[in-house]
């Protein structure tokens, strides 16, 4: 582990900004949002978390898959991805990228659009100092200190940051400006250990569950509970759109400006249109079915197929849901 003092961090940020596109949380209207910054001072690191997850940098809300010109028969496949550094991602949101990796990059058919973006963006996470009260990242081992999808983990301690390179790309980023870093001393490591202990204890006191039992959620489904809970749901798709993990998409073909365009964009299982087929048949016809599906998919089907949970415990859906549907209730009951 390396140590980077406050001054060094500022210099590192300036270096990065002058060399590469840096995306960092910026405060706007009382919220933090990920934005491209022009100089290091713009980034603010005193945030609990950004309102929206950094998902859109990897899976844009809408992207063109290809354009086909019927006259020239040229096929144009825009493959996106500017080189960038995504700074200040919370460990939970960074762990979501790990889930994306296991789902979207699974051979034999990896998603080339996601792959190119994932390759071009270096993720630097900043561990949580004060978890929000909705957070439950400890349940899925997605925080609060270390996540699982980032390239570099920064941990704030007195006087600076502890730096841990988690991947080859992270390592090389550290090596580029190696002179700024120093080897972490024992007092730094001690503080780190204390912080980890304290936060883990704090999170575990809120909620602690058995993951093995949770995976069997679908097999041991209690419809009565879900019927009770689904009564409240109004089926907006806010939870999936603000979720760092929800990756479902839909495609659309249309004709525009002399070209056939295929686009892909976020879709959501809360919508009645999600499973409706051309014939009009809908396998998930009722509100309870769709409600159940969301939790079963995240907590039971994704872990069975990909060996990692489809939730990272960032608490966005809990906090933003207009009617207070709370995934923690499901966790507490089945975990």
């Amino acid at each position: 582990m390396l140590f980077l003092d406050e001054d060094g961090f500022k210099r590192l940020l300036e270096q990065l900004v002058s060399n590469i596109r840096v995306i960092a949380p910026v405060e706007t209207d009382g919220y933090f949002e990920f934005k491209t910054i022009k100089h290091g001072g713009e980034a603010s690191l005193d945030y609990s978390n950004t309102r929206l997850p950094p998902k859109r940098f990897f899976l844009p809300q809408r992207e063109v898959v290809f354009k086909h010109d019927p006259k020239t028969r040229a096929l144009h496949e825009p493959m996106g991805g500017l080189e960038a550094v995504l700074l200040g991602v919370r460990p939970c949101d960074a762990s979501a990228l790990n889930i994306f990796d296991s789902v979207l990059l699974k051979p034999p058919n990896p998603d080339p659009f996601y792959e190119s973006r994932r390759r071009s963006i270096t993720v630097v996470s900043l561990s949580c100092a004060k978890p929000r009260e909705e957070c439950f990242c400890n349940v899925f081992e997605a925080g609060p200190i270390r996540g699982s999808g980032e390239d570099i983990t920064l941990t704030r301690i007195t006087g600076g940051f502890l730096v841990e390179a988690r991947s080859r790309r992270g390592q090389s980023l550290v090596e580029v400006s190696a002179s700024l870093f120093e080897e972490a001393g024992p007092e730094h490591l001690e503080e780190y250990g204390e912080l980890t202990c304290r936060l883990t204890r704090e999170m575990n006191s809120r909620i602690e569950i058995s993951r093995e039992r949770l995976v069997r959620l679908e097999a041991t489904l209690d419809e009565g509970f879900f019927q009770q809970a689904a009564q409240r749901c109004v089926e907006c798709s806010l939870c999936s759109f603000t979720c760092p993990v929800c990756y479902c998409f839909d495609t659309e073909d249309y004709f525009e400006k002399n070209a056939y365009v295929r686009t892909k964009g976020w879709d959501t299982c809360a919508s009645t249109l999600f499973t409706r087929m051309a014939s009009g048949l809908d396998p998930r016809v009722s509100r309870v079915d769709r409600f159940c599906h969301r939790f079963c998919h995240k907590l039971s089907r994704i872990p069975m197929a990909f060996n990692s949970f489809g939730c990272v415990g960032c608490g966005r859906c809990v906090s933003l849901c207009p009617v207070g549907v709370d995934i923690r209730e499901v966790l507490k009951r089945w975990g």
């Binding site: 809300q61 109004v234 907006c236 798709s237 806010l238 759109f241 603000t242 959501t268 919508s271 207009p322």
Partner: peptide, 10 residues
């Protein structure tokens, strides 16, 4: 806007 339809559904 994310077009999450929360306004419509609420």
């Amino acid at each position: 806007c994310l077009k999450c339809m929360a306004c419509v559904k609420a």
